[in-house]
Simulated assay, not measured.
Amino acid sequence: LPPGVRGTIGGATDAFREGLRGAAWSLLLSLLLVFLILAAQFESLRQPFIILFTVPLATIGVTLTLALTGQSVNLMSLTGLVVLVGIVVNDAIIKVDFINRRRAEGMPLLEAIEAAGRDRLRPILMTTVTTVLGLLPLALGLGAGAALQQPLAITIIGGLTSATLLTLIVVPVLYVLVAGSERRTL
């Protein structure tokens, strides 16, 4: 630009950046609130980390699904990510709570983990399948206004699917690691 002339980005681009910033803050705030609620529920500062570890597992599926469907990261997909935080931690909460209850009843750690895997598998899979099937018409772009909300549905479907599958394996492993470190510190 010639001397004395300046340019600023505004309008739609400025609104988009502000929306992205707001979505990022919403995501961080939702993670913090979920952590605080879980810490109070489990009366532990370590077990909430096991549960919150499902969020990065979900982002693997989100990234792959958005790339495979040709969708971009936009405000709707980021909104889907915020919604996804609340949904994916549910599976891990179910498993960790079940393990904790069995251990409180006197069951050994590995048996409690095995029982959680066996007895909670069906409810976890049913929740995931019903959510995915419910969002499928929106993800396929069917219906009025679906094109606008399609990235949201694709984000939730991809993230929930990967988080569910990976959570079934990763949460028990993390639980063993955390339980082992708790035993060593006592």
Rank of each mutant, 00 (worst) to 15 (best):
A115I: 14
L177Y: 13
I157E: 03
Q41P: 13
E105A: 12
L165Q: 03
R120L: 07
A139I: 08
A58Y: 03
P172G: 06
R101N: 11
G143N: 07
L1K: 11
V176T: 14
I113T: 07
G117F: 14
T65V: 00
V82D: 04
L68E: 00
T69C: 02
A58W: 02
F53Q: 14
E105N: 14
D97P: 11
D14V: 01
L140Y: 06
L135W: 06
V88M: 03
R46F: 15
T13I: 05
A92C: 09
G11V: 08
T69M: 06
V73N: 05
T59V: 11
A112Y: 07
L32T: 11
F53G: 09
P151L: 08
L33I: 00
T155M: 09
L57S: 00
V85P: 09
L138S: 01
V82C: 06
E182W: 11
M126P: 02
L109E: 12
A15V: 10
V170S: 08
A67N: 10
K95M: 13
I113P: 10
L135D: 00
S77R: 06
I124K: 03
T155N: 06
L110Y: 11
I9V: 12
G11I: 09
V62E: 00
A153L: 05
S162M: 11
L20A: 00
V83E: 04
W25Q: 09
V83H: 05
G80S: 10
L142V: 08
V132H: 02
L1F: 04
A40G: 13
R102L: 10
L148M: 04
Q47I: 13
I9A: 10
L165K: 01
I169N: 06
V73C: 01
P2N: 05
G11F: 08
T155R: 03
L133G: 02
A179K: 15
V170I: 14
D119K: 11
Q71T: 02
S77H: 03
I93L: 15
L160T: 00
Y175C: 14
F53H: 10
S30K: 04
L166M: 02
V96Q: 15
T131P: 02
F42L: 15
F98G: 11
R122K: 14
L32H: 04
T8D: 15
G19R: 07
T127S: 06
V83Q: 05
M126T: 09
F42Y: 15
L121D: 12
S72I: 07
I154C: 01
L152W: 04
A104E: 15
V73K: 01
I157V: 01
G145Y: 07
L68H: 00
G143D: 07
G143Y: 03
V178M: 15
A23V: 04
L29Q: 08
A23R: 03
Q41H: 11
L66C: 05
T54Q: 06
L121Y: 12
G7F: 10
A92Q: 12
G19F: 01
A153H: 05
L57F: 02
F16N: 12
N74A: 04
F16S: 05
P56I: 09
R103L: 14
V170P: 14
F16M: 14
V62W: 00
R103T: 08
P2Q: 09
N100M: 15
I51W: 07
T65P: 11
L31Q: 03
R103D: 15
A92R: 13
G86E: 05
A39G: 12
F49Q: 10
R183Y: 13
G134T: 01
T59Y: 02
I37S: 06
